[in-house]
Write a protein that binds this DNA or RNA. Structure first.
Length: 616
RNA sequence: GGCUGUGUAGCUCAACUGGAUAGAGCAUUUGACUACGAAUCAAAAGGUUUCAGGUUCGAAUCCUGACACGGUCACCA
C-alpha cells in the first residue's frame, strides 16, 4: 500500500516540527484539511493549534512549514500562506501519475474484500396495500447502504421481513370476501397489489359508514355522555373513539378479528384466502421492486417468525436478565439504561411484538453468521429498536454489539404528512410513472437519441426518470425529515440525477468520437489547468469518501459527491477542448481524465442504485 | 410532562464533525450554441445560521437555558 497524501503530509509536518522547533507534534495537533476552492492548493495545514508548541505566530509557522515541505517533499510543488492557513499545492507529476495508474482502474474505489458479513434489512412492507413514497425512501436508503457496504469490502446480505399476517390483511380479505363478487386482478386488469389495496380502502369506507350510523344509536349516545370530556364536541370524541369502537362494538371489526383468529387456528378456507390475496400482493411487489432495481437475498415472513423468540425470553429469565411478575408475565427492567420496563410475555404465555424480533435476530445470525445487522426503519421506531438492542445485549447474543438501526425521517408532502386515511399517500408506481412521463417529454424536446430503436429510447428514458426520482430522495441526509415536492422530483436540471447522467454521457460521447487513438502520450502532459487539477483532486477523494459513507451509512454524501464531480466535469468540458486540444499529449491526457471521471460517476451512481445511460 | 430528532437564502438541501468571507440547486434577473452533446456554462441578487448566554485563538457545529415543529413513551403491530 502506498501512502495517501494526508499521511505523507502529516508525517512531513511532524518531521518539520521536530527539525525546525525541536518539538514533538502529535497527530492530533496537526490539523490537515482540504483547501477551500477560492485558494490555490489542495491541502491546508491549520497552524493555530501549533502556536503553543512552536511559540511563534501562526503565519510565521505556516511560512516555516511551507518552506520545509516544499524543499523536502517531492509531492509538494508550492505553497501559500493566508493568515494561519498553509495551503499546499501538490505537484502535477503526482496528480498525473495518480490519474494514469490508479484513478483509471475499472474498480477504482473498491475496497479489498473482508471476511465479514453484514445483513441489511429494508423495505419490509405490510401486504394489505401497495408500496408508497415512504417505502421508496426506505428502499433507496437500504439499497444504497448495502451497496456502500459491498463497495467497502463487506459481504452483504439483503433481507426484508414481510408483514404478511395480522389485522390489516384480514381487513382486505374480509372486504374482498364480502364485496368483490369474485373479482380478481385478472378480471379487472389491475396491478394485483393495487387490487388488494383497494379492498383495504373499501373496508375502511364501509367501516366508517357503519361507524357513522352507530353514532346515532342510543348506545353510542350513552357512551358519549359517559366518556366525552367537558369541552369535547361529539365529532371530536368519536374521532378518538374509533379504535375502541372497532374492537368493542363494530360488526366489521368483530368479523375481521374473527378472521385473524381463524387464521391463527389454521382454518382452511381462511388460510386459502390469505394465500390467494398475499400471492396477488407479492406479484405486484415484485414488479415494483424490479422497476426500482432492487433484489433481496432472503425474504422472511412474519407468518413464520411471529412465534419465534419465546425460548429466548425463557433463557433470559433463567439467566436473570429478565424478571417474572406474580401473574406469570415476564418483563425486562431497562430503567437503568434510560429505557422503561418492557413486557416480553403475557401471563397467558402469548408473546408480544418485540418477542418475535428477538427470535428473528437470532434466526438471521444462524442463517448468515453475521455479527452486524442493520435495520432500515423510520425514526418513529427509535424507541423500539433501542429497546430491542438492549434486550439482545442483556441476552449476551454474540451479534449484539453489531446491531444498528438506520433511522430516517419520514417523508412529508408540501401539504403536510401523508395519511392513508385521508387518501394523501403517494403511490410508488404512480410516482415512477409520473417521472418517466416527464422524462419522455424532456427527451422529446431534445431529440438526442432519435437514431436509436424505440426499445433503446424507452430504456434510456426510464433510466433518466428513475435517476431524477432517486437522486432527489437520496441526496437528503437520512436523519432529516424531508419534504417531497412532486414538482421538484421531476426536475432534470441543476442538482439532479439527470445532470450527473449527462456528465457521464459526455465522457462517453467524446470517447466514441475519438475512436482508436494512441494514448501513451498522456504521461507527457504537463501544466495541468485548474479545471483538470480540480477533477483529479475530486477523483482522489472518492475511495475514502466511500469508506466514510459506508461507515456512517449515509448515501447522501455520495450523491453530493457525484453532483460535485459532474459539475466539475461540465465546467472542464466548457473551458477546454479535448479532441482538438493543443497537443497530442493533452488530447490523450484529457481522454484518460474523461474515462476516469466517467468510471467514477458510474460507480458513484451505482452506489445509489442509479443507472447511467451511454446516451441521453 | 420524560426521552429524542429537527430548526441555515423565498423554497429544497450542504457545510469534510471546532477552522478562512456559511455554500449549492430551484425560483427571479442577465449573458453564452456555426465547438467533443446547451439536460450545459457564466454572472447578478438573495443570510442577525430560531433566540439568549457561555466555553476559546476561532462556534451553524460543543455546553446551559428558552422558543417552534416532529417522533416516541402498551401485556398494539
Amino acid at each position: 500500500m502506498t501512502k495517501t497524501l494526508p499521511q505523507i503530509l502529516q508525517a512531513g509536518v511532524q518531521r518539520a516540527l521536530t527539525e525546525l522547533y525541536g518539538v514533538d507534534g502529535s497527530s492530533e495537533e496537526i490539523t490537515l484539511q482540504t483547501t477551500r476552492r477560492e485558494f490555490a492548493g489542495e491541502y491546508t495545514v491549520v497552524t493555530f493549534p501549533l502556536t503553543r508548541l512552536a511559540r511563534k505566530k501562526p503565519d510565521e509557522i505556516a511560512e516555516d512549514l511551507g518552506q520545509y515541505l516544499k524543499a523536502n517533499l517531492a509531492e509538494v510543488a508550492d505553497f501559500n500562506v493566508i493568515k494561519g492557513f498553509l495551503n499546499l499545492v501538490i505537484s502535477d507529476a503526482y496528480w498525473s501519475d495518480f490519474l494514469l495508474t490508479a484513478a483509471i482502474q475499472e474498480d477504482y474505489g473498491q475496497s479489498p474484500a473482508r471476511d465479514e458479513t453484514v445483513v441489511v434489512e429494508f423495505s419490509s412492507p405490510n401486504t394489505n396495500k401497495p408500496l408508497h413514497l415512504g417505502h421508496v425512501r426506505n428502499i433507496l436508503l437500504g439499497w444504497s447502504a448495502s451497496q456502500l457496504l459491498a463497495k467497502a469490502g463487506y459481504n452483504v446480505k439483503r433481507v426484508q421481513i414481510i408483514n404478511d399476517r395480522g389485522i390489516a390483511i384480514c381487513k382486505s380479505m374480509l372486504a374482498w370476501q364480502r364485496y368483490s363478487d369474485g373479482a380478481t386482478p385478472e378480471s379487472t386488469g389491475q396491478k394485483p397489489d393495487h387490487f388488494v389495496g383497494d379492498y383495504y380502502v373499501l373496508f375502511e369506507q364501509k367501516f366508517q359508514e357503519e361507524y357513522q350510523q352507530w353514532q346515532a344509536t342510543e348506545v353510542a349516545q350513552q357512551v358519549l355522555a359517559q366518556h366525552a370530556k367537558a369541552e369535547q364536541t361529539p365529532a371530536e370524541f368519536f374521532k378518538g373513539f374509533s379504535k375502541k369502537y372497532f374492537n368493542d362494538y363494530s360488526e366489521l371489526g368483530q368479523a375481521a378479528k374473527q378472521m385473524l383468529l381463524d387464521w391463527e387456528a389454521g382454518e382452511t378456507e381462511t388460510v386459502a384466502l390469505w394465500r390467494k390475496m398475499n400471492a396477488w400482493v407479492y406479484a405486484g411487489f415484485e414488479e415494483t421492486y424490479a422497476r426500482l432495481g432492487v433484489t433481496f437475498d432472503k425474504l422472511y415472513y412474519e407468518s413464520e417468525t411471529y412465534v419465534l423468540g419465546k425460548d429466548m425470553v425463557e433463557l433470559g429469565l433463567e439467566k436473570g436478565a429478565f424478571l417474572a411478575r406474580e401473574d406469570g408475565s415476564i418483563y425486562a427492567d431497562l430503567t437503568d439504561a434510560k429505557l422503561s420496563e418492557k413486557t416480553l410475555m403475557r401471563a397467558d404465555g402469548t408473546s408480544i411484538y418485540i418477542t418475535q424480533d428477538l427470535g428473528t435476530a437470532r434466526l438471521r445470525y444462524d442463517d448468515f453468521g453475521a455479527k452486524r445487522m442493520i435495520y432500515v426503519v423510520a425514526d418513529e421506531q427509535n424507541h423500539h429498536f433501542a429497546t430491542l438492542f438492549e434486550l439482545l445485549k442483556r441476552l449476551e447474543e454474540p451479534y449484539a454489539a453489531g446491531l444498528f438501526h438506520l433511522s430516517y425521517g419520514m417523508v412529508d408532502l408540501p401539504t403536510g404528512r401523508m395519511k392513508s386515511r385521508e387518501g394523501t399517500v403517494v403511490d410508488a408506481d404512480d410516482l415512477m410513472n409520473e417521472v418517466i412521463h416527464e422524462a419522455t417529454i424532456a427527451s422529446q424536446e431534445r431529440d438526442a437519441t432519435s437514431e436509436l430503436s424505440t426499445e433503446e429510447q424507452k430504456a434510456i428514458i426510464r433510466q433518466i426518470g428513475m435517476a431524477a426520482l432517486k437522486f432527489h430522495i437520496i441526496k437528503v441526509g437520512p436523519q432529516k425529515r424531508m419534504t417531497f415536492d412532486p414538482k421538484e422530483s421531476v426536475d432534470m436540471q441543476g442538482q439532479t440525477g439527470p445532470y450527473v447522467q449527462n456528465a457521464y454521457v459526455r465522457t462517453r460521447a467524446v470517447w466514441r468520437k475519438a475512436g482508436e487513438l494512441d494514448l501513451s502520450a498522456a504521461a507527457d502532459y504537463r501544466d495541468l489547468a485548474p479545471a483538470e487539477r480540480e477533477l483529479i483532486n475530486q477523483l482522489y477523494a472518492f475511495p475514502a469518501l466511500v469508506r466514510d459513507a459506508a461507515e456512517a451509512l449515509d448515501p447522501s454524501v455520495v450523491a453530493m459527491y457525484c453532483y460535485e464531480l459532474a459539475k466539475s466535469l461540465h465546467k472542464f468540458w466548457h473551458d477546454h477542448s479535448i479532441l482538438s486540444a493543443e497537443s497530442p499529449a493533452a488530447v490523450a491526457f484529457r481522454l484518460q481524465l474523461c474515462k476516469a471521471v466517467g468510471n467514477t460517476l458510474s460507480a458513484g451512481m451505482n452506489l445509489l442504485g442509479i443507472e447511467v445511460p451511454e446516451r441521453m
